[in-house]
């Protein structure tokens, strides 16, 4: 007997890059995901809640999370003001009935935002039913040096925020013990980015099982504790030469999630 938790398995539109947001919805439906996480990106469709609503209806794919445009390459998407960005993400989530907004900790140059990040986020959390799940990041390294790129910290255990996203490619880069982080976060863990990494300085987002992270164990442990958040496949398929190759990686990731997100039932 196994116990399968209520957690849904979603596809991040980022997993299909450089394919469009539209193609990502189509693939998610074809492959049998439970829903989609929209990475708000330079693709105009990803920035437009009405267009997203239409896609969600057309492919019968619920939108389970909005990833706010707080990446290095999306600093000017929607707006440059970080708080306005989060408000826009919240509005989009509310409009699309997505329970979660994924947020990165501020970059070091966003000094004021970083100073107010924890208190400001708590305030925004009070004003909405949407959960702001802050994602673990990593220090930046090169030529044997390491610098702090994020403030107040890349490490969720150093951040006093009520809800978090655990990314299993980022734990590989930061050299964190993913199982220990998963346990320490406890109920604060609201969202998971399923990926893998081999522990280089690069954020690899490998298909789960192809790197060194304890992806299967993390999923089992979540299942054992009845995790009801979302597991989102966020892998890099940029190298895929065609749609079949890309879909094969996505299908492998989905199968990995379904297979491992199960615990032995207590006897």
């Amino acid at each position: 007997m196994v116990r399968v938790p209520g957690a849904k398995v979603a596809l991040s539109t980022a997993s299909c890059y450089p394919e469009t947001c539209t193609t990502a919805f189509e693939m998610a439906a074809d492959l049998g995901f439970d829903g989609v996480e929209v990475m708000v990106w330079t693709d105009p469709v990803s920035q437009d809640p009405d267009a997203l609503r239409a896609l969600s209806d057309r492919f019968a794919m619920p939108i389970l999370a909005i990833h706010a445009p707080c990446l290095l390459l999306t600093q000017r998407v929607w707006t440059t003001d970080p708080w306005t960005k989060l408000q826009r993400a919240r509005e989009a989530a509310e409009k699309l009935a997505a329970p979660t907004v994924v947020v990165h900790p501020p970059f070091r140059w966003q000094r004021e935002y970083a100073r107010e990040f924890v208190t400001g986020l708590a305030r925004m959390q009070d004003e909405s039913g949407v959960v702001f799940a802050v994602e673990n990041m990593f220090p930046w390294r090169a030529r044997g040096r390491e610098v702090a790129a994020y403030l107040p910290h890349w490490d969720l255990l150093e951040l006093d925020v009520p809800a978090t996203t655990l990314d299993l490619s980022h734990t590989a880069v930061s050299g964190s013990d993913a199982l220990a982080v998963c346990d320490a976060l406890g109920d604060r863990l609201a969202h998971v980015h399923l990926a893998d990494g081999a522990g280089s300085n690069k954020d690899e987002h490998l298909v789960p099982g192809r790197g060194s992270q304890p992806c299967a164990e993390v999923l089992e442990r979540l299942a054992a504790r009845g995790y009801a958040g979302c597991v989102v496949l966020e892998i890099n398929t940029r190298r895929a030469v065609n749609r079949d190759e890309r879909e094969a990686d996505l299908a492998e990731g989905l199968a990995f999630a379904r297979f491992n997100l199960a615990a032995e039932a207590a006897t």
Binding site: L72, W140, A142, R145, E146, V147
Partner: peptide
């Protein structure tokens, strides 16, 4: 110099 070293490859 450490900051430049991590930024240049990016």
């Amino acid at each position: 110099a450490a900051d430049l070293d991590v930024w240049v490859p990016r």
